[in-house]
Simulated scan of single mutants.
Amino acid sequence: MNSKDGDLRPPAKLPASPYYAPLEWNPDSDYLDADDGLAADGEDWRYTIEPIRDENDHIVGYGVHGGDNDSGDELGSLTIDGQSGELTLEAAMAAANENYLDRYLEAETFLDDLLDGWEDEDGVLVRRNERGRLVCRVAEPGVEEVEVVATLRDYGDEYDADNCSVALCLRTILNFSNNGDRDALVDDLRRIIRLETNRRSS
């Protein structure tokens, strides 16, 4: 979590991706025990918070759950009544927000490890722009270079021609990261650009 009383760590770095935004909390329509469950959705990720009550029905803490479409985890720095959680609602929200932030930073780290500072025989292939985002030379007709940004969507890469940006979903990022094949990643960027360019021209 960001720095607070007793925690001297600096505030967390924010993702460079324009797709990242802090979680927004709303009543959880799937929580049937009462009206005080909360939920927040971030792309294909979902986080929920529900009160933990003692035998006298007093709230003693808040359980926090979160994850993507395939998996989820209990979150929190404490064990309350046998489950992970936090003592206050504010701390529970912060735990979920930190987890979502960390997942975005992790995805961006995978991209950075593949592409950042890459040069080929023609010079710098990948650089960073003033917003801290990766910019890759693709040399496609009408598109010399594109931003490459991460999303936490499970599926669905897309090319935003107006902003000259390719958004890579988590599955694509992990696939190329696991293989360590950045040449294939750049080829895939070109394929995504061509698909959208052809779609617009048809």
Rank of each mutant, 00 (worst) to 15 (best):
N97C: 12
G6W: 06
E86A: 08
D154S: 11
A161N: 02
D120P: 03
G123V: 06
D183Y: 10
P27I: 15
I173R: 00
L185F: 00
K4P: 08
K4F: 11
R131A: 15
D160R: 03
N99G: 13
Y62M: 11
D35S: 12
I49L: 01
G72T: 04
G6L: 01
L87I: 15
L38N: 04
N163Y: 12
R153S: 03
G132R: 15
S202T: 11
D154R: 05
I59G: 04
G72E: 08
L125R: 11
Y20W: 09
G132C: 06
D28V: 01
Y19C: 15
G63D: 03
D5F: 06
L152F: 13
S17C: 06
W118H: 07
D7K: 03
R133A: 11
S177Y: 09
G61A: 04
D73P: 10
N178R: 13
W45D: 02
A16R: 04
D187R: 08
P27H: 07
H58A: 05
N178V: 09
S177F: 09
M1F: 07
G67H: 03
D188G: 01
Y155V: 14
G6R: 06
E140L: 12
G132N: 15
V64K: 00
A16W: 01
I80Q: 10
G76A: 03
L23M: 04
L89K: 12
Y104I: 07
I80A: 12
G156E: 01
I49D: 05
L78R: 14
M1W: 13
